[in-house]
Simulated assay, not measured.
Amino acid sequence: MAMSASIVLAADDPAGLARFYGALLQVEPQPGLSGTHWRVAWPAGGWLEIYAPSRSRPQPQQLARLALCLQRQSDGTGAVAMLNTWITAVLGLGASLQEPPRVEPFGAEAWLLDPEGNRLLLLVMPAA
């Protein structure tokens, strides 16, 4: 039996958050199974499923250890310069910077919050 996978994200404004991630990933968000469900194609395959939680089972906003991570390979201009350009674009989409960029052994990273406060890690890996 075939299996598929997706990432599920509860949202107060599913359409708005789908527009944010659609713009960030440069894909068109798609309506889901109901008026409060949206799908965004995930770069690694599968979908980012964004939905409004049921009123009978609310999901309060909370910071957790789980975060979405988007990665790019450095284009030769330098991982930090590329990361700073990317951060500026994502801030323009409505995200906020949680921690300033820093260089780690595996690349340059920055932690942000999406428009609804979910953690988002941007990682630029050094050129191979």
Rank of each mutant, 00 (worst) to 15 (best):
R119W: 12
R72F: 02
L63K: 12
A15M: 09
S6Q: 15
N84H: 06
G45I: 07
L68N: 00
L113Y: 10
R102N: 15
W38H: 13
G78Y: 07
P29V: 01
G78C: 12
A127R: 13
A64H: 07
I87V: 04
P101R: 04
R119N: 10
P31K: 05
L97A: 00
A127I: 14
P105Q: 06
F20G: 07
P60F: 01
L122V: 03
R55Q: 11
Q73L: 08
A110Y: 00
A23G: 05
L120R: 09
G46N: 08
L9H: 07
G117P: 05
A67M: 15
L123I: 01
L91K: 03
L24E: 00
P126Y: 00
R57T: 14
P14N: 06
V40P: 08
G78K: 02
G22M: 02
L112V: 08
Y21N: 02
E104S: 03
W38G: 06
R39C: 13
W38N: 12
M3S: 11
A89E: 09
S74E: 13
E99G: 00
I7E: 10
Q62N: 11
V40Q: 03
L123H: 10
G78T: 09
N84D: 11
A81I: 07
L93I: 01
L122R: 11
T77Q: 12
Q30K: 11
P14I: 02
W86Q: 00
D114I: 06
Y21M: 09
E109L: 15
V124M: 04
I7A: 13
A44D: 12
R19A: 15
S56L: 08
L113W: 12
P14Q: 02
R57E: 15
T36I: 04
E109V: 15
R72T: 00
L17V: 06
A127P: 12
D75F: 04
A128W: 13
V103A: 11
M125Y: 01
S34R: 06
V80P: 05
L93D: 06
R19D: 15
A79I: 06
F106Q: 14
G16C: 09
R72N: 03
V124K: 04
R119K: 15
G107Y: 08
W86V: 04
G22C: 01
L122K: 05
L17C: 05
M3D: 11
R102V: 14
T88K: 01
A44T: 14
A52Y: 02
P115G: 01
M3G: 10
P58Y: 08
W111G: 05
R57M: 14
V80H: 10
V8M: 12
D12L: 13
H37R: 04
R19L: 12
Q71F: 09
